[in-house]
Write a protein that binds this DNA or RNA. Structure first.
Lengths: 165, 165
DNA sequence: CCTCATTTGATGCAGCTGCATCAATCTTGA
DNA sequence: TCAAGATTGATGCAGCTGCATCAAATGAGG
């Protein structure tokens, strides 16, 4: 018989689910109300804007964002449709391609960060001291490493223009 | 100009998003691999099974589960289709109806709890001491109360057959 | 009693997700 | 060199979500 979780663990699980979806909803709503596209678009634009030459292979984007391949493929479709990115062929590997962020894409990413960061402050920052935020991060990390790895490169100028990852 | 979140808050936000989706994915996968329906079904069955007479108004279910009205309506459709619940007309309010859990529904809920609780233990319980789970719950609660209220009735016999809420 | 607002639940539509699969290309190794 | 396998990316299909809206019934006020 499998061991059962303690009430403490179960309670933490439930809160993790509920609070995350609540907070995420709030943030997404704020973005939407400000006339911006979903967070996933931001994440993709951020990754692209950070890439050395503003372009990435879809496979790279996929790995960075931790989303499935088909999801990446379609997200790129939408970004391209909106003129936020463009596809370029990859000379060295004809299977592949490069996705390059456009000027409009870079600009949208920056504008979104204004609303996004305000939302993070509103729904997270203002609720926790920095010390508590660190504690929360630490506890969450203990759960996260479970089902795969999570590379979290040195959090540098997060405040400047983007959440680090 | 709106205040910007600290790097600590931003980092906590990112981890909250990533860890939750990771852990939820893992749990859902375990359930699916065991041949069970999605967690939402379990939540609904649990609420129904807890109701005094095994039945609830859709509106009640909606409030308990914190999901939108149309979502409830369709979830009930699916439960009914699978014979896990049935709709009964509501004599006193002809707009409304009652949704009653069936024997099959009760049984599925119990069987799912076996797999569900094992998954919670595997992905949460085993990663945190009870004391840390309590700390995590506490920190999460500070975020949760932000965008609405969350009634969390006294967590009683969580272990017995269900996560409390 | 009658009208108007509210509550309850259903549904058409568009968009997104996951799954499975496909085609094209690249890589490996005999 | 060539066949088998791996990688890269796209896509058809089904299911779920959110939005807007609808119809039916109830309730509140005049």
């Amino acid at each position: 018989m499998k061991r059962k979780p303690s009430t403490e663990a179960t309670s933490a699980w439930i809160r993790l689910m509920r609070v995350q979806s609540r907070v995420l909803d709030c943030v997404e709503q704020d973005l939407k109300k400000a006339g911006f596209p979903p967070l996933a678009w931001y994440d993709a634009l951020l990754e692209l804007s950070r890439a050395p030459s503003g372009e990435l292979r879809p496979v790279e984007l996929e790995r960075q964002m931790l989303i499935p391949q088909y999801s990446t493929s379609r997200l790129i479709d939408r970004l391209v449709d909106e003129g936020l990115a463009s596809r370029r062929e990859c000379k060295i590997d004809k299977r592949g391609q490069f996705v390059e962020i456009t000027e409009a894409g870079r600009e949208l990413q920056k504008r979104m960060w204004g609303a996004y960061s305000a939302a993070i402050e509103k729904y997270v920052g203002s609720k926790l001291s920095d010390a508590d935020a660190v504690k929360l991060s630490g506890l969450l990390d203990r759960l996260g490493c479970s089902c795969g790895e999570m590379k979290l490169p040195p959090v540098a100028n997060v405040n400047e223009s983007s959440p680090s990852r």
